[in-house]
Simulated scan of single mutants.
Amino acid sequence: MREISGPGSCRSNVELQIVRVIVASLEQATVHVRCLRGPVRRGARFNRLGGSAQAIDLTLTQAVVYGHRVAELDTGLTAFVTLRGEGVQHLESGVLASGSQAVEGASPFA
């Protein structure tokens, strides 16, 4: 599914499952994720936290797969990503009993 964000710019719907929050500050978090819907590219914006009414506005600034920085994550890949913006404090590590959290948003096309 694709959505138009503005004149001349296209974006695709994306989703990352939170496996574990590694480090979090007020505006930035390093998170171990699994890509549920991609490709997720640097600059992807996340504005929905699955199963929550909490407002977030997070931007993916970096993705690392097997120790190497990558420009995008394909569906099924796991990675360490850096998310920056408002709502970092609402990110939670996945727990088997309660299920896992996911962030949803849009990613710019290449």
Rank of each mutant, 00 (worst) to 15 (best):
E92T: 01
E92I: 02
G51S: 14
A44Q: 09
E27L: 14
A44P: 10
L16I: 00
I4V: 11
L60Y: 10
L73I: 05
L83A: 03
G6W: 00
V31P: 05
S12C: 01
S100F: 08
R84F: 12
M1E: 11
G50L: 15
S107Y: 00
T82F: 05
F46Q: 10
H90P: 00
I56T: 12
R84N: 11
L58F: 11
G94Q: 07
E3R: 09
Q54N: 15
V95I: 08
A79D: 05
E27D: 13
R69Q: 12
V88F: 04
V14I: 13
S107L: 01
V33I: 13
L16Q: 02
I4C: 00
L96D: 08
G51L: 14
V23P: 01
H90L: 02
A55M: 15
R2N: 07
N13Y: 09
T30P: 00
L83Y: 05
A110C: 01
I22P: 00
Q28N: 11
G8A: 02
T78C: 13
S98N: 08
F80W: 03
H90E: 04
L73N: 09
A53E: 15
A55S: 15
I18K: 06
A79S: 14
A63W: 06
V19S: 09
Y66F: 11
S107Q: 02
L36C: 15
G105K: 02
I22A: 00
V40E: 10
E15V: 04
D57E: 12
V70Q: 05
S93P: 02
H68Y: 11
V65D: 03
V81I: 04
R42S: 09
G99D: 02
N47R: 15
E86Y: 11
C10Q: 06
G99P: 05
L26G: 11
G94Y: 06
A55W: 13
